[in-house]
């Protein structure tokens, strides 16, 4: 009996170690699946759970806080999923949070993600129902992708045609291959820069003028604000228009008269033509004019004699005196 005691102790240690490793593993697995400790049930009604299974993880903010405990198909479009989450973390789940289905990694297990809603909502009660956001439908995504692919194919065809047209365009290539073009463009840009500098100066001058005008009390702004000015301008333009019309009609009349005169001259009819073309009449007129000139000289002599006459001499002196007075006043 005595010699077997150490054997039994070794055996006991061996068995304890073996079972302890198993129990430890099971404990951590249980802790991972929230089997120990107080649990808090929350419910979500999905339309489609997309392969969600009992035991899948529940995540809040990307951290596992519980597991899926029960999945019940209530109707053809309603699947009630009961989640159990850690009782201590349950106050973090608010009534307006939204549950959605996700995947752990690219090809991993399904998970229920609880996404926070707008802040300010109260914490959810036990067995409270969270709103559900439906998972992305793979078929719908593929359908959309198919349409996108077709559009891309069409766009690429158009792009090919466009590139071909660009390649075949001689004008475009001539522009691209023109070695003088860059120099011209540079010169143009320089001119534009110069023009813009001048424009800047001009604008500055205009601003100065505007400031001066604005600062003066009797400025152009006051002038522009004068409503009578517009009325006057309107009336003036009306008059101008009438004058122009009259000038037009006068011009037309003159035109007609000139036309008539030129016609008369050309055709040799009428009094004007007779006067201008009759040489005897011309001579008699010249004689008459010569007589008139002689008559005028005689009249002048008579007038000088009249001034010297005692009857009219006082009258002419008074006239001279008044003329001198007027000249002095002007000076």
């Amino acid at each position: 009996m005595q010699d077997r005691t150490p054997q039994n102790i070794k055996l006991g240690i061996f068995v304890l170690l073996g079972l302890a490793s198993l129990v430890t593993l099971l404990y951590f697995m249980g802790a991972q699946k929230n089997l120990f400790g107080k649990q808090f049930p929350v419910e979500v009604v999905f339309r489609n759970v997309s392969g969600l299974r009992v035991g899948n993880n529940v995540r809040l903010g990307g951290i596992n806080i519980g597991t899926v405990r029960k999945i019940v198909l209530e109707a053809d479009t309603a699947v009630r999923v009961t989640l159990t989450v850690d009782h201590e973390l349950a106050p973090l789940i608010k009534t307006n949070d939204v549950a959605s289905l996700g995947t752990d990694g690219l090809m991993g297990n399904r998970v229920v993600n609880i996404e926070p809603g707008p802040s300010g909502a109260p914490s959810i009660a036990p067995n409270g129902v969270l709103a559900a956001r439906e998972a992305l439908d793979m078929d719908a995504m593929m359908r959309t992708l198919d349409i996108t692919n077709r559009n891309f194919a069409r766009m690429s065809e158009d792009l090919v045609q466009t590139v071909q047209r660009i390649n075949n365009s001689e004008a475009l290539w001539a522009v691209l291959e023109d070695e003088q073009l860059p120099a011209h463009i540079r010169a143009t840009v320089r001119n534009i820069q110069s023009a813009s500098q001048k424009a800047d100066l001009l604008v500055a001058d205009i601003q100065t003028v505007i400031r001066e005008v604005a600062s003066s009390e009797q400025g152009i702004i006051a002038l522009m604000k004068d409503s009578t000015l517009m009325t006057d301008l309107h009336a003036a333009s009306g008059r101008l228009r009438r004058v122009t019309e009259q000038a037009d009609s006068l011009g037309a009349t003159l035109q007609r008269a000139a036309t008539s005169l030129s016609t008369d001259l050309a055709e040799g009819e009428g009094p004007l033509n007779a006067i201008l073309r009759d040489s005897s009449l011309t001579r008699s007129v010249q004689r008459s004019l010569s007589n008139v000139e002689k008559g005028t000289d005689a009249f002048n002599l008579n007038m000088e004699a009249l001034k010297s006459h005692f009857l009219f001499r006082g009258y002419f002196r008074r006239l001279e005196k008044e003329a001198r007075k007027q000249a002095e006043i002007k000076e």
Binding site: M1, R4, Q7, N8, K10, L11, F14, V15
Partner: peptide, 16 residues
């Protein structure tokens, strides 16, 4: 019992 424990020792512990 004793033989059982002895066998456990021989089979279990001796094979560790």
């Amino acid at each position: 019992i004793q033989e059982f424990f002895r066998q456990c020792y021989m089979i279990g512990y001796r094979s560790v």
